[in-house]
């Protein structure tokens, strides 16, 4: 898995309900998705163009989890976001 993760598409709007739940709205497909607390940390990292290593550190700083486990969870979520076309398939916009 490469260090660089693509930033979210411009047409995906993220709204944070509170610290525990957020919503992504795809303005093109007119569909929305909910994110749990951990997924929100990852999405915020993607929006801020943080590297994979930095996002893993964000997760391990906040949660009782090993870097290896956090990395696996990050990669799995990124794959899901790509499958739902919420992230570009490769680096860049």
């Amino acid at each position: 898995m490469s260090e660089s993760i693509p930033s979210p598409h411009e047409h995906i709007v993220f709204t944070e309900f509170d610290d525990t739940e957020g919503v992504l709205v795809d303005l093109n497909s007119k569909r929305y998705y909910t994110l749990n607390e951990t997924a929100m940390i990852i999405w915020r990292g993607l929006e801020r163009k943080r590297t994979r290593t930095e996002i893993i550190r964000d997760i391990t700083d906040a949660y009782d989890v090993t870097p290896e486990h956090a990395a696996q969870s990050l990669d799995k979520l990124v794959a899901t976001l790509r499958a739902r076309k919420l992230l570009p398939a490769d680096g860049g916009q």
Binding site: L35, T38, A39, D64, L77
Partner: peptide, 21 residues
């Protein structure tokens, strides 16, 4: 040792905005 227990990150299945409204 104060960190929160880890919960796997989850993105829900898509919901059609028009259906919801």
């Amino acid at each position: 040792a104060d960190k929160k227990p880890f919960v796997e990150p989850v993105v829900s299945v898509p919901v059609d905005v028009l259906e919801a409204t």
